[in-house]
Each structure stands twice: as structure tokens, then as C-alpha cells.
């Protein structure tokens, strides 16, 4: 099972945070700051070119 580091933004308070997400994870996501469930998964930042 692989895990990736994902970025999220809370659509209620604007707080941005990162979380490790397991491949087949089925987890309710909550903002660590305001406890809202309006959590938007952000696109991964582009890998820096070698």
C-alpha cells in the first residue's frame, strides 16, 4: 500500500494543510483549525525540473 503527501485547503476558513493519504484510505476529512468538512484537495505542485 502506498502513501502520498497531499495538500488540502479548508473552504470555510482558508487554512491550507498537508496530510499523508494512504492509497485506499476512506477517511472523513476535517479542517484541523475550524473543524469544517469543506476540504478541497489541491493539485500537487509540479515536480522541479532536473
Amino acid at each position: 500500500m502506498t502513501a502520498t503527501l497531499e495538500r488540502f485547503r479548508c473552504m470555510a476558513c482558508g487554512h491550507e494543510f498537508q496530510e499523508v493519504v494512504q492509497e485506499d484510505e476512506d477517511k472523513e476529512r476535517t479542517c484541523p483549525r475550524c473543524r469544517s468538512n469543506s476540504i478541497r484537495k489541491l493539485k500537487k505542485a509540479a515536480e522541479p525540473a532536473e
Partner: peptide, 18 residues
């Protein structure tokens, strides 16, 4: 959220809560 943003609508206007 992506669709709203693309259309120039503030995506925060759509909220989701359990």
C-alpha cells in the same frame, strides 16, 4: 469547486458539511 472557480465564481460559496 473546480468548475465554479473556472467560471469565475468564488468556490467558497459552495460548502460541504457532515
Amino acid at each position: 469547486w473546480a468548475k465554479l472557480e473556472k467560471a469565475g465564481v468564488r468556490p467558497e460559496r459552495l460548502q460541504l458539511e457532515w
